[in-house]
Amino acid sequence: GSSGLPPGWQSYLSPQGRRYYVNTTTNETTWERPSSS
């Protein structure tokens, strides 16, 4: 899909309704949208 996220990243919603991002390669999580640069 065209999520616009860098490879390996997925976006999720927290129980509070906030969006966060997870790097499935490194298990890093961040509130900031990852850049593909």
Rank of each mutant, 00 (worst) to 15 (best):
N27W: 11
P7Y: 07
Y12L: 09
E28Y: 07
G4R: 10
G17E: 02
T24H: 11
W31N: 05
N23Q: 03
Q10S: 10
L5S: 03
W9E: 00
R33L: 10
S14M: 03
N27K: 12
R19S: 05
T29N: 05
G1C: 09
P7N: 08
Q10T: 14
P7T: 08
S37H: 12
Y21I: 00
G8V: 04
T25K: 13
S14P: 01
T26W: 02
P15D: 10
E28R: 05
P34S: 01
V22G: 01
N27V: 01
N23I: 01
Y20T: 02
G4L: 11
Y20P: 01
R19F: 12
S35Q: 12
G8N: 09
T26E: 02
Y12N: 04
L5F: 03
P7A: 10
Q16Y: 07
R19W: 15
S3E: 14
P15M: 06
P7I: 08
S14F: 01
L5D: 06
S11K: 02
E28N: 04
P7C: 15
S14K: 01
R33E: 07
T25V: 15
Q10N: 09
L13N: 04
V22D: 00
T26H: 02
N23S: 04
E32N: 08
R33G: 03
Q16G: 14
P15L: 07
S35L: 11
S11P: 04
L5T: 04
Q10R: 14
P15T: 08
T30M: 07
R19Y: 15
Y20L: 05
T25M: 15
S2R: 06
G4C: 11
P7D: 10
T24R: 08
W31R: 04
V22N: 01
T30G: 02
P34W: 01
P7H: 10
Y21H: 00
S14W: 00
P7K: 07
W31Y: 10
G4T: 11
G1I: 13
G4E: 12
L5A: 04
Q16R: 08
N23E: 02
E28C: 04
V22H: 09
E32K: 11
S11M: 14
Q10A: 13
Y12F: 15
P34L: 02
G8T: 04
L5M: 06
Y12D: 04
S2P: 13
P34K: 01
S2Y: 10
R18K: 14
L13S: 04
L5E: 10
S3W: 15
P7E: 10
T25E: 14
G17M: 02
T30I: 09
N23T: 00
N27I: 02
N27E: 06
R33Y: 12
Y12R: 07
P6Y: 04
T24D: 07
E32V: 13
W31K: 03
T24W: 10
G1E: 13
T30H: 05
G17S: 01
S11E: 15
W9A: 00
Q10C: 10
Y21G: 00
S3M: 14
G1H: 12
S3I: 13
N23H: 06
Y21P: 00
T25H: 13
T30L: 07
V22K: 08
E28V: 08
R18S: 10
T24F: 08
W9G: 00
W9I: 03
N27A: 08
Q16S: 15
L13H: 04
W31D: 05
N27Y: 09
V22A: 03
T29H: 12
G8L: 04
G1R: 02
T30S: 10
P34I: 02
S11G: 05
T24N: 08
S11V: 12
V22W: 08
S35N: 12
G4K: 10
Q16I: 07
G4W: 13
S11Y: 05
L5G: 03
Y21R: 00
P15E: 12
Q10K: 14
G17H: 02
S36P: 12
P34G: 01
E32Y: 10
S2W: 10
S3N: 13
R33Q: 07
R18G: 11
G1N: 12
S11D: 05
P6W: 05
Y20F: 10
S36A: 14
W9L: 01
Y20H: 01
R33I: 10
N23D: 05
G8A: 04
Q16A: 13
T26D: 02
T26P: 00
P15H: 08
W9Y: 03
R19G: 02
R19D: 07
R18Y: 13
G17W: 02
E32A: 07
R18A: 09
T29E: 07
R33P: 11
S14R: 01
S11N: 01
Q10P: 01
S11R: 02
S37K: 10
Q16P: 02
T29S: 08
W31E: 05
P34T: 01
R19H: 09
Y21T: 00
N27T: 04
E28T: 07
E32R: 09
P6V: 04
S37N: 13
T30Y: 07
R33T: 06
T29Y: 12
Y21M: 00
Q10W: 07
G4H: 11
R18N: 14
S14E: 04
T25F: 15
L13E: 06
